[in-house]
Amino acid sequence: MKLSEEDVKILNSKEGLRRILMNKKVNLERALRLANYDHKLKELQTELIKLQTWVINNNKKVVIIFEGRDAAGKGGAIRRFTAYINPRRYRVVALPKPTIEEEGQWYFQRYVNHLPRPGEIVFFDRSWYNRAVVEPVNDFCTQEQYERFMSQVNDFEKMVQSSDTYLIKLYFSITKEEQEERFEEIKSDPLKRWKITPVDLRAQELWDKYTEYKEKMFEVTNTENAPWTIIKANKKTEARISALSHILETIPYE
């Protein structure tokens, strides 16, 4: 492997040396790729601090939705995004199964309760779009409930945006083979095994049905005012860089 002066500089940096020493068998090509990722991620995380400062100082509100198939890397991306920003001025929302009381409410009500206050960023690790894909695929809602949601969601998002809120919708996309590989990795790791749910266990079996509902969701809800951005997520490092770059490019912070 031929190294440029810039490559050598990166490998001699703190990130580069850490990546070289991570494995007993030195792989300079892999170490260089990951060191470049570390460097780029740190640059973007620094910019995200600036964005958050602008949000706080100008009482702006930001909602960032992370959707995608199970094991697509949504949670890992959120952890990188929130690693250095002010913890008092952001929230990560990952709602559990609705309570009996919530099931009797207007569907969007439980999400309205978690929308950002002025000067705050909210990251939704899955969102109201559960009803567009996960719930109908797994028979967690009726066809009537699904259709009602699809007829209301665009108007709901317009109302959110009209309250001076930035809304960004990210969809992390992986292949069926990549999902299967990640599930096997999680199952074999005792520290990660808790992540596997009954819904995850059926994801491969229901792959085509998920695809059908996902495409319906894009067709109806990929609107001019609230478009979807598809993040290719087979490589987690590239997905994180791509998603964070998109956020920084979309919100006009100073």
Score class of each variant (00 low, 15 high):
E205H: 13
E101T: 15
A203E: 15
Y90W: 09
E185C: 00
F124L: 03
K192I: 11
V55H: 06
Y129D: 03
E180W: 02
L3A: 08
E67Y: 01
I56A: 07
R126A: 09
I78K: 01
P198V: 05
A233H: 03
D164V: 00
V62D: 02
L201Q: 14
E43D: 15
T250S: 12
M1Y: 11
N130R: 01
N36H: 11
V133I: 15
R182Y: 11
T197H: 12
T165M: 08
Q105P: 02
I64R: 04
W54E: 09
V134A: 06
E180F: 09
G104H: 10
E144V: 10
A72L: 08
G76H: 08
K50M: 08
V26E: 10
L248P: 03
Y90N: 01
D139C: 05
R91Y: 08
R193A: 14
E224K: 15
S245T: 12
K97T: 10
S127I: 02
N130C: 05
R19A: 09
V137Q: 02
L41E: 05
R79N: 13
M22E: 15
K9M: 12
E238R: 12
N27E: 14
R33L: 14
E178F: 08
K9W: 03
I168V: 15
K25L: 09
P190K: 09
E178R: 02
R131G: 00
F124T: 00
F123C: 07
V93C: 09
K192Y: 03
K42N: 14
R91E: 11
R19Q: 15
I174F: 02
V122W: 04
M150C: 09
Y166P: 02
E178V: 15
R33Q: 12
A203D: 13
F156Y: 08
K187T: 03
T165A: 04
I247V: 15
N154I: 03
D155Q: 07
N154V: 11
I241D: 05
I174P: 06
N36G: 09
L32R: 01
D38I: 12
T175G: 02
I49P: 05
E147A: 12
E157Q: 07
R30F: 07
N58L: 12
V92K: 03
M1Q: 13
C141E: 08
I65H: 00
Q45N: 09
A233Y: 04
M150K: 07
P136C: 10
A31D: 10
Q45F: 08
P96F: 09
E29T: 13
D189Q: 04
